[in-house]
Design a protein around this nucleic acid. Sequence first.
DNA 1: TCGGATTACGTGCACCGTAATGATC
DNA 2: GATCATTACGGTGCACGTAATCCGA
Lengths: 282, 282
Amino acid sequence: MIEIYLLEQLEAFARCGTLSGAADELHLSQPALTRSMKKLEELIGVPLFERQKNKLVLNENGKLTAEYARRVLEQDREIIGRVRAFDRQNHTISIGGCAPVPLGQLVPQVTALYEDMTVSQEVHPDAPLLDGLQDGTFQLVILHEEPADKALYWVPYGEEKLYIVLPKDHPLADREGIWLKELESMNILLFSQIGFWYELCVDKIPNPHFLLQNDFEAFGELIKASNLPVFTSSYYLRDPNIPNDGNRVVIPILDQEADVRYYLACRFDDKKRFGTLFKRIS
Amino acid sequence: MIEIYLLEQLEAFARCGTLSGAADELHLSQPALTRSMKKLEELIGVPLFERQKNKLVLNENGKLTAEYARRVLEQDREIIGRVRAFDRQNHTISIGGCAPVPLGQLVPQVTALYEDMTVSQEVHPDAPLLDGLQDGTFQLVILHEEPADKALYWVPYGEEKLYIVLPKDHPLADREGIWLKELESMNILLFSQIGFWYELCVDKIPNPHFLLQNDFEAFGELIKASNLPVFTSSYYLRDPNIPNDGNRVVIPILDQEADVRYYLACRFDDKKRFGTLFKRIS
DNA sequence: TCGGATTACGTGCACCGTAATGATC
DNA sequence: GATCATTACGGTGCACGTAATCCGA
């Protein structure tokens, strides 16, 4: 068999054109390469080089061998990466969700339940989540529509409802409920990482004026320091850490899409694997 | 980089199931394999085995690695064979012909002209010869029909005409010429290696009774010792070594297909390569 | 004179084998 | 006791480096 190091050296020589160049690149001496190339020729049993007095050139056999060498080297190199990736994949649970709130609830549960696993999370719209479930990118996903795919197993995973918080002196402040379309052209403070909610707002509010904020701390400060309208949800209303300062009123959004049920799904193959998780939830 | 010998050893272990079995097969000691497998694990950086007290089993990572190993090993093994075949191909001229007579004339010419090349010859019908020219099986072919393919270069290469030799007391012995169909049901001595001539005779003679002979010497003896009809050609008639013993008469075959012109062809790419050969011939 | 290939020679390490140990059936 | 994996230790082959030589621009 031809060992990898020989192919590596041939490949380097094929690229560099001279033994000295290749030796330099490989951090080897010229004599080492001379010997290796001879050995390779001997091993294969046909001349691979045209030996001019002061120059070594690949002949047609040599060029062909170098081409094959490249392929073998690539495959050989790939092994380490692929196996590591495979191992990693078996030690991480990747969770995707359409919104951060249910994700934030699920991740600690999963982390606690599967102690030796690494848990990763990503926010994406429903469609790529379903794709990701199929191609192995995700093992668990949280959707806001019932999955129709028969190859999936799923359970309901809570609800979330959208509210708008308005200053008391706002024209709409005395309403019992508000439609998104009524927020036309209004300046609204918006936290950027809210998943599908963002698309919903963009879709339903004509000519929206969102004041996007990436940083959650800063977002909170802006709320306190201003009297701008801001969205919130049933989840945050339950949170006692977010006091209502009395200067704003919380009004439910009336659109049907603002009332969301979440669904936790996995591939049917994985139903057993996540059995205890599903049991905990329901 | 992972050296080939490590992959070889892993592959053997994957097949055998035990280190001792693999060691046996590879003519190595068990400790050598233990060390190699450890080294492989270290190199890749993930566990490849489940180590029970007295047993070593591939885990999922290991199985995957073994699978990759198989592929790399196969590719690596292939190099030697492929390059040798390529080299060989560049040092041999393979000639195909539809009949042995023109082949027998061409081969010595080619051998003399291209001294450092090995010359091989094969007899086949025209169609596979043309295919072989395209796929590299042959570099030169002798056909008995003008090639229509524009990608080929060709020159006329002599003629050959078919005769039948009959005993003087044969009913047809006084004829000036004979049609093949008139040889219906006749016992005829036939040398087996005559290329397309055989197909011609089978096609044109109704209910043929050929006495096939593989050995050329024996064929000659049979002619002498019998008074059976036998085919010959213009080529052999010119040969003074084949005396006419006076007991038979030579009568030309009248069928148009019995009058053959040969054509020497090569791929147009090779026209230059065989330039001197073509010049010699014409 | 410099850069490149090859030859000659010495060396160190990596891979191997033998022997011994532990463990399971 | 037989089989299998692992550890310990000693040996050796071989791939490497250094130095020297040859050759051509």
